Computed example of a mutant assay.
Amino acid sequence: MKLLFKKAMIPFTLLLVLILSACTSNEGQSTESTNETSETITYQSENGPVEVPSDPQRVIVLSSFAGNVMALDVNLVGVDAWSKMNPRWEEDLKDVEEVSDENIEKIIELNPDLIIGLSSIQNVDKLSEIAPTVTFTYGKYDYLEQHIEIGKLLNKEEEATAWVEEFKKQTAEVGQQIKEKIGEEATVSVIENFDKQLYVFGDNWGRGTEILYQAMGLNMPEKVKEMALEPGYYALSTEVLPEFAGDYMIISKNPDTDNSFQETETYKNIPAVQNNRVFEVNAKEFYFNDPLTLEFQLEFFENAFLQ
């Protein structure tokens, strides 16, 4: 970076003229995220203000937010492995590289103009030297506020906000229809088998939980509320699964994982199983809570509960 800077140096007098000219031409211009006349905008990140491109063309997402970026029609050049493995995004991401926070050289080669990730990613200092890097702490914003924040970052707050408002209306309508069909007191649980371990989820850990519990206001079983609501998820054994099973069950199922728990007598004797109230989804399609995934989840729930 220093070498490039030295090569780009110009005589001081000319530099001064350029600075004065720039100040004059930019006088009165706003630095708010809605300013589209500037080449950069200032995004107020949780770690302080960050200068980012007003119209990013080569974005890398290192965790969670690929669907948010795609929903706002912004070009991606690199995404995390979880996004890359989503079968629904195979076509959209076929020319997008899989990267991680450890692939510094590969990220340099991709020449990004913006990098986005969770606050848990590594090498933020190195990444920030490559391109403006903005991270988010998971759960600091709810799933809809998060999309609006991504919209602000990408200079598309208006589009993001419009989507959120429309989605709220849709989920409210479908949620009311579902309640009328299954009853106000019916419970729903979301179960996933990952790496030979069963998990049950609270109301903010993807897998459709935000829609079911937050948007639609459906009930989670008391045991789920007790153990999984605050931390977001809870690991359990097959033997205690009936205690966490709702009147309806969403099974987030990874086709690459051993799902033999469904062959046990314990599982087969759960009332939701016996009453044909279990809806299976492909975990790889259901992990996230971005707009593209949320729309897919909403359509699935509408068809599953109301068919």
Rank of each mutant, 00 (worst) to 15 (best):
D113V: 11
S64D: 10
S119E: 11
P112I: 13
N204D: 12
K169W: 14
W205L: 04
A8V: 00
T37F: 14
N303Q: 10
E285R: 01
K6I: 02
K169Q: 06
M220T: 01
M249N: 05
F288C: 11
T187C: 15
F261V: 08
T34H: 09
S30P: 10
N26F: 04
L229S: 11
K196M: 10
R58C: 15
W89S: 08
Y233R: 11
D256S: 08
N111V: 06
G48W: 07
P132E: 02
Y213Q: 01
A66P: 06
D55Y: 01
R207W: 00
I108Y: 03
G28R: 05
Y199S: 04
Q197N: 13
F136H: 09
I116N: 07
Y143P: 10
K225R: 04
N204K: 03
G246R: 00
P56N: 01
Q57S: 11
L218C: 05
S237I: 10
L292S: 10
V96E: 06
E109C: 10
I150G: 15
N219L: 00
G78M: 03
L294P: 00
R277G: 11
D290V: 13
A162L: 11
G48E: 02
N47I: 01
D55W: 00
D55L: 00
F300A: 13
N282P: 01
R277D: 04
I116M: 12
T161S: 04
N193Y: 08
S189T: 06
R207F: 15
S64H: 14
D258H: 15
K2H: 05
A228C: 02
D195F: 07
I19D: 10
E226W: 15
F288P: 05
S38T: 03
E210Q: 08
A71Q: 13
S83M: 14
A235H: 08
K106Q: 14
G246V: 02
F136P: 09
L118N: 05
Y138L: 06
T238Y: 05
F279L: 13
T187A: 04
E184D: 12
R88Q: 07
F305C: 11
I104E: 06
I270V: 07
N103P: 03
Q57P: 13
A131Y: 01
V224M: 11
E145F: 15
A245Y: 01
L241A: 10
V188W: 11
